[in-house]
């Protein structure tokens, strides 16, 4: 019987603590055949499970070009994430997916890319950044503004440096006022303001902005001022989900089922939806 709720087994090949309460985990399929034919689009998500504890939904934050493993990143906040926190190399967990639409990277070809992320929202941007860097010739200038509450809350810090090495890539990092350490060399301020101050070209740009609602809300007026149309501004919504396939009835925003038609949508799409998110 085809059981859409039964996950595939994946093995943990590495874990890494990113912040005091955020970890990233790399997994690969136990079935090597499956590893070869598995494909996904950046921006899609998976449902990961710790058996005996339950399932949780996370973006697949590795690039779709990487065939050896999948990566996801989570903050320890509940029953499932506490169980995932205890994972060690060699442990086996469940994976269902990929689900959702992913980023329309084909449509982004030839454009400048602006990535704006806040806190734990870096992982879903990270996959797109790596994808863009690996297909560098397809895209124009890349601007990355990433901020968190404090220096300790920044995730994938080492990769920020790697990205900055690439030609025509600008990486701006920032922390909220009061969140800096004495040796902090980045910006101090909220992501929208830091982005505003950083300036830069806005012509022919695609923006991917993911973060807490307040950050997105404050970013929009700046983008408006820069003349970036809302159809070129993308975000990824993350509502609570259970089934991942449009049945369990909880992730919808109006008639928009985030698990199937999302999680990625433009601001223009979002503005058409009821504000039920």
């Amino acid at each position: 019987m085809a059981n859409i709720y039964k996950p595939e087994l994946v093995k943990v090949i590495a874990t890494r603590q990113q912040t005091p309460d955020v970890k990233s985990v790399k997994v690969c399929f136990q079935d090597s055949g499956r590893a070869n034919d598995f494909a996904f689009r950046v921006g899609q998500f998976g449902i990961f499970s710790a058996f005996g504890y339950g399932e949780s939904t996370f973006n697949i934050c590795s690039s779709s070009n990487w065939k050896d493993y999948l990566e996801f990143c989570f903050r320890k906040v509940g029953r499932v994430t506490e169980a995932l926190w205890r994972l060690e190399e060699g442990d086996v967990i469940g994976f269902r997916g990929p689900y959702g639409n992913g980023y329309p990277v084909e449509d982004w070809k030839g454009k400048n890319l602006i990535f704006l992320g806040g806190g734990i929202a870096m992982p879903p941007i990270r996959c797109a950044i790596w994808y863009a860097l690996e297909n560098r010739r397809d895209f124009g200038d890349i601007t990355i503004v990433y901020g968190a509450r404090t220096v300790a809350d920044l995730v994938y810090v080492d990769e920020l440096d790697q990205w900055a090495q690439h030609p025509n890539v600008r990486v701006v990092r920032c922390v909220d006022p009061g969140g800096q350490t004495p040796d902090w060399k980045g910006e101090i301020g909220f992501v929208p303001h830091v982005f505003d101050r950083a300036g830069g070209s806005s012509a022919n740009s695609i923006v991917l902005v993911i973060g807490p609602p307040i950050m997105i809300k404050n970013t929009l007026p700046i983008l408006d001022r820069m003349g970036i149309p809302h159809r070129a501004v993308y975000t990824s919504l993350e509502n609570r989900m259970k089934c991942g396939c449009g049945k369990c009835g909880r992730c919808n925003v109006g008639a928009f089922y985030i698990c199937k038609e999302g999680p990625v949508l433009t601001m223009e799409d979002l503005e058409r939806l009821p504000s039920d998110y």
């Binding site: 058996f51 259970k242 369990c248």
Partner: peptide
């Protein structure tokens, strides 16, 4: 009405994933 929840039921050695109405 057909909304449901999915949870794990069991102990550290064995159990089942179940769905309940929600």
């Amino acid at each position: 009405c057909h909304c449901f929840d999915i949870i794990d039921e069991g102990n550290a050695n064995e159990g089942a994933r179940v769905r309940n109405w929600d």
